[in-house]
Design a protein around this nucleic acid. Structure first.
Lengths: 335, 335
DNA sequence: CTGAAAGCGCTTACAG
DNA sequence: CTGAAAGCGCTTACAG
């Protein structure tokens, strides 16, 4: 049915070995021959069989993204960045959603799903325990962590502790002393970034001699509705917070809504700052700490391809890559 | 390095043919033999080489999603639905973003990228012209369209014309006579769904004897900021609209914001209805027409697998699959 | 610079 | 129910 390299070889009057070399642009081919073969192949609309070439070389030409959460703004941005990085490598990008342990886990472990199918794995937003339980380290291919660091594993992330500090320090500078927190899951959690953000929050409070009050911390599940409910609980406290740090912009949107409904004016009655640099933050005049999500994706994609190219060499030096975050002060903190 | 089927055959004292059959659960194997082979393979942690098996069978075990837009709520929902549908088929899911023609097109046509790598293609939100220019119909594999219909091509979508009618009829029922429109791109566009929604909008106006006023139509680029600007232009009209239909919820959020800033109360001074059934619509008390995006993804995934299984048979009957939409009346239209 | 030939690891008629 | 053997379509030492 489909043409093979033999058809091209016959048409060009050369061996299949020469066609193979010519088509891949290897340099041990006479330029004239190469050009002719390439031209003929194109005329015949020949294209190589990936399966055959993969079997012959032992490389899959694919990488996988493995992640518990598929959707949302964060994933989308990340993905766009990865696409940009991967474009020039001509690798297939496999997507595998694991689901959350205990919630909607995938029937197969990621290990089973990607084994022998990929040359490397990008692990997104997964706690280390999960990376292990999904068997990702048992794969004999490079793994790059995205969104958190772990000793000895290549990773691309932000410094969550530092980023949280930026947010809370901003609130302290605006004169606040009772600063509430809307987290994702209830703390502490298996997710490192959230714990790190909590650590940053606590550090700043302590450094400024502010009292640490556990009742001022509410989980919001990283959703708008969750943020709204969390803020409602905070608003009903006596005394309540005068400022709130939400661990995501989307939760902050919910919080803004809860405030408005109670007639509490953001940035005036109560200050609120989000986290992410989500598209709508500007629209809602929400202060936030921006993380360069797209760049994270790009850097992770590049790092993974680098590790794949390096093979088993250079396994020693794996300095984590940390990308900078940035404070955006807006109306919601009175700016 | 990695184990082959020969290793398993040797260990089990059978031929590679029997191992191959046993591992795939074919029925022409003695149950006792099968169980033993399977057990031994598991003990050895053997797993089949996809490349070899693909080369031998001629099937790739992969499908591609090809789409101009990667991100956002719509894509995410769709993807979740597709994952659900595809889970039981054990196919690899390749992602290919084409970029928009004339904006950020991909250097390679989708045709080049997925050729010989997939057994089928899911085309998401692409105008037919683009499907053609990307060479997707030249692929010798089944193609399923997601988000629009085309004669003779299997597809899964909503009835955009009808859905738009729901929105506009709701506004008419609430007594509105000057109804504005916030579209995505300037109309008419190469994107069928938008044109269909425009058609539905116009139909309702005409049926109710309302005047059709082109100045009441503004593009908003399917973004919050675009919706905001579009609404600002509409608000400065004299006489302006008393109600507005936005072709996406996200544009409607922007519109809400423009209204609030001008002191125009949604649902009271001016009614507004969105489109999508986005997560936040409820939070913002936005009326909308919900489309079942996740179900669209699921249905499309299933349809594609069905077409692949059918092979070149049954090419005749390709009834488009249409999923229902639903009106949600909320405060933004005075409900 | 080029080709003949072996090999990558499976699957599948075919024969028994 | 089982096996020997050919074949899937490439790539890659090896020899020249």
């Amino acid at each position: 049915m489909a043409l093979t390299i033999r058809d091209v070889a016959r048409a060009a009057g050369v061996s299949t070995a020469t066609v193979s070399r010519a088509l891949r642009g290897l340099d041990n081919v006479d330029p004239a021959t190469r050009d002719r073969v390439v031209r003929i192949a194109r005329e015949m609309k020949f294209s190589v069989s990936p399966s055959a070439s993969r079997l012959a070389t032992g490389r899959t030409g694919s990488i996988a993204i493995v992640t518990p959460f598929l959707g949302g703004w964060y994933f989308t941005e990340l993905f766009a960045g990865m696409e940009a990085a991967l474009q020039r490598f001509d690798v297939d990008l496999l997507l595998h959603a694991t689901g959350m342990p205990g919630v909607t886990a995938h029937p197969l472990r990621a290990h089973e799903r990607v084994r022998r199918r990929v040359d490397g794995v990008l692990v997104l937003g997964m706690p280390l325990e999960m990376v292990e339980s999904e068997g990702l380290f048992e794969l004999d291919v490079p793994v790059v962590l995205l969104g958190l660091q772990a000793p000895g594993v290549p990773s691309v992330s932000i410094d969550d502790r530092l980023a949280a500090r930026m947010a809370v320090e901003h609130l302290v500078e605006r004169g606040h002393k009772r600063i509430g927190l809307i987290s994702g899951r209830p703390l502490p959690t298996m997710f490192v970034p959230e714990n790190d953000r909590l650590a940053g929050y606590l550090e700043v409070l302590v450094e400024h001699g502010l009292s640490v009050d556990e009742t001022l911390r509410e989980p919001g599940d990283f959703k708008v509705a969750g943020g709204e409910q969390a803020m409602e609980r905070l608003l009903s406290l006596r005394p309540g917070p005068t400022a709130v740090f939400a661990m995501s912009d989307e939760m902050a949107y919910g919080a803004l809504r809860a405030m408005r409904r109670r007639g509490v004016e953001p940035g005036k009655d109560i200050a609120i700052i989000g986290f992410d640099g989500h598209d709508l933050a500007d629209t809602f005049d929400l202060s936030t700490v921006r993380q360069p999500v797209r760049d994270l994706g790009k850097a992770a994609g590049e790092l993974l391809m680098e590790r794949i190219a390096a093979g088993s060499l250079a396994d020693a030096e794996v300095a984590p890559i940390l990308l900078p975050t940035q404070l955006y002060a807006r109306g919601s903190t009175g700016c």
